[in-house]
């Protein structure tokens, strides 16, 4: 944990907004710039910022290793799950028109879940890579 008071105060102030901004980028991605990739990276950057200021041990309390590893795989599975759901409802793989009675609404629903899957995977991978580098001592 860093002793620098300035960094800790600024970090405490900024980190909630970084995480909130990531969620905004995710859920507003249909109407403004943004989407799953950006949201995942920004979310991971917020947590990395937290880990840099308050130390790895505190970061592990927020985001334990097992959770990150689950996120890593869950995103891809969610993405494939959306594809399979389209298949089960009588469409093609990754066909969103069948996800709802109204095809346009189905498209929106499909895009949302797919972007969520992308966000989860990207966030998990970035965090996991950071943890791997950070937890490895000088060899």
């Amino acid at each position: 944990m860093t002793k620098d008071l300035l960094l800790r105060v600024i970090g405490k102030l900024l980190i909630p907004f970084i995480l909130l901004f990531a969620l905004y980028v995710m859920f507003h991605g249909d109407y403004g710039p943004g989407g799953g990739f950006q949201a995942g990276v920004i979310f991971a950057a917020g947590i990395v910022f937290y880990a840099l200021i308050f130390g790895m041990d505190n970061a592990r309390k927020v985001m334990p290793d097992w959770l990150v590893e689950i996120l890593l795989a869950a995103g891809v599975l969610l993405y494939i799950g959306v594809g399979l759901a389209g298949l089960l409802l009588g469409g093609n793989f990754l066909d969103y028109f069948v996800l709802d009675a109204d095809p346009i609404h189905g498209q929106h629903r499909g895009i949302f879940w797919v972007e969520l899957g992308v966000m989860i995977t990207v966030c998990g991978v970035m965090l996991k890579i950071f943890y791997m580098f950070a937890s490895r001592g000088r060899g």
Binding site: G29, D30, Y31, G32, P33, G34, G35, G36, Y79, G83, L94, Y96, I104, Q107, H108, G110, I111, V114, E115, V118
Partner: peptide, 19 residues
């Protein structure tokens, strides 16, 4: 698909396999 941000629409819908 009536999503104003075309990049999101193409990314997640038209080119879903790619993504």
């Amino acid at each position: 698909v009536q999503v104003p941000n075309v990049v999101t629409a193409v990314l997640a819908s038209f080119r879903g396999y790619d993504t």
